[in-house]
Design a protein around this nucleic acid. Structure first.
Ligand SMILES: NC(=O)c1ccc[n+]([C@@H]2O[C@H](COP(=O)([O-])OP(=O)(O)OC[C@H]3O[C@@H](n4cnc5c(N)ncnc54)[C@H](O)[C@@H]3O)[C@@H](O)[C@H]2O)c1
Ligand SMILES: NC(=O)c1ccc[n+]([C@@H]2O[C@H](COP(=O)([O-])OP(=O)(O)OC[C@H]3O[C@@H](n4cnc5c(N)ncnc54)[C@H](O)[C@@H]3O)[C@@H](O)[C@H]2O)c1
Lengths: 214, 214
DNA sequence: AAATTAATGTTACACTTTTCACAATAAAGA
DNA sequence: TCTTTATTGTGAAAAGTGTAACATTAATTT
């Protein structure tokens, strides 16, 4: 069985590049092409493909179309994947407005907020419901995944609510480590921490533009 | 010298928890407290502190106040760190509205966009300038770091422009691997990929709630 | 048809990160 | 004061991840 975490992310990067290449009319790609485009070593590219059972041709490289089909199969892109957003504030809004998910068979089907003033928002592509509609909605629409963009203070409570409702995966934007049962998947998007980490590393090497070259 | 990447992220997580503990009136913390709160093993906590030269007391644990001071020193929080945002769309807007950065000595001082209709936005806490004001602004205000929230299509060009202007670190929200010189730091925030990865992992284990326990 | 070539596929190695085990030690208790 | 105890601090083992070397093979050339 496939180990799968870093490779999964890389696979998604490959897919992006492969789509662009396909749009440009290319039919095949070599591991070093794809590596260059995605910042990955050619060996790693081959190894990743090998791990997912993707075969290339000994001299002609990989067929882009086949690659894309296989990658889509790996990600179960045969069926639309439904997601909800909880917390329609700054980030929640931004995500609801974003059109890019559909391309990858992901659809945000509803959003939820505790603040009644949000329910009437007409500019949004999906309705905003009150929180107490959430459990029924999740069950009826068989939702597995939620994007959680609520204030830090309530993040754990909202997560508990989501899990109670049957959600299996949560994308959490609050800078909190959620305590959840082991079968629940969490992805933390910590914009603040990423930014601080970036600033730290930039400061580390000063302004003289001499990073560890190698 | 400190190696520093994973540890840096964990340090930021520790800081979050430590702040909360301090607000609650605690004065000391044990590695296993902090570990529990941040989802890190106690050994890892101790090792991280040890690596950054932080000492605890053989029975009494660590002093929270000292810890916080040291962590702030590591991140050079003596001076305000100035950041710009490029691309005032959905995400750019959300970030500009966010009040949480100041607490950690980060200030977004200006934003830039190619679309003139954005320049008059009055609801924003910082001005939106035209792109051609960027190079001068970056030099005059000694900006090192930029948050880049522009469409994928233009991401590489905008990154080139930023680097040309003297930016050393870029937080990139476009799902593209930027090609940059080795002394430039990039953090990619790939919301789409994170979401797909989350869905993948949730699907992998089916709906029966039996993750690899251990 | 044989040799060469240009790629893939894989095995072994190196590095990084985490976990484990336990030594060290300061505080608390006897 | 001596012993116990609870916790830190760290060196060694293990696991995970990426790199490098090379064996393999199908196409191309001679
Ligand atoms: N905006 C940013 O740039 C940014 C940066 C870093 C981190 N974050 C984090 O992302 C999260 C969201 O940030 P934001 O700026 O969008 O916040 P926001 O305050 O704009 O939005 C939060 C939304 O959640 C809703 N809400 C509050 N309590 C709720 C509950 N119990 N159930 C459901 N909805 C509830 C609010 O009504 C509001 O609409 C926060 O945790 C924040 O720390 C945001
Ligand atoms: N919104 C989301 O939830 C989301 C999710 C995943 C990825 N992303 C990525 O984040 C990025 C931003 O997304 P968004 O939804 O905010 O997009 P958006 O279209 O709302 O905003 C982009 C902004 O960039 C500006 N812009 C365009 N070209 C520019 C240039 N050359 N220089 C400066 N500014 C320029 C536009 O005028 C616009 O204001 C995109 O790359 C997108 O793929 C967004």
């Amino acid at each position: 069985m496939i180990s799968a975490n870093r490779n999964i992310r890389r696979l998604l990067r490959y897919r992006n590049s492969l789509c662009k290449m396909q749009e440009l009319g290319f039919e095949t790609v070599y591991s070093y092409n794809l590596g260059r485009e995605t910042g990955v070593s050619p060996e790693q590219v081959r190894k990743d493909f090998s791990q997912f059972g993707i075969k290339g041709n000994k001299k002609g490289g990989y067929n882009i179309n086949e690659l894309l089909i296989t990658i889509r199969e790996i990600f179960r892109k045969d069926e639309l994947q439904k997601v909800i957003v909880v917390g329609v504030g700054n980030i929640g809004n931004a995500i609801l407005q974003y059109k890019g998910f559909q391309k990858n068979m992901i659809e945000i089907v509803a959003s939820f907020d505790i603040d009644p003033t949000k329910y009437k928002k007409k500019k949004l592509p999906v309705p905003v419901y009150s929180l107490d509609k959430l459990p029924k909605f999740v069950v009826e629409h068989k939702i597995n995944t939620a994007i959680m963009t609520v204030p830090e203070r309530v993040a754990q409570d909202v997560a508990d609510l989501l899990i109670e409702a049957g959600i299996k995966g949560i994308m959490n934007f609050a800078p909190t480590v959620l305590k959840v049962p082991p079968h629940i998947h969490i992805v933390n998007i910590c914009i603040g921490h990423e930014l601080e980490s970036l600033i730290y590393h930039s400061l580390q090497m000063g302004n003289n533009g001499r990073g560890k070259g190698s």
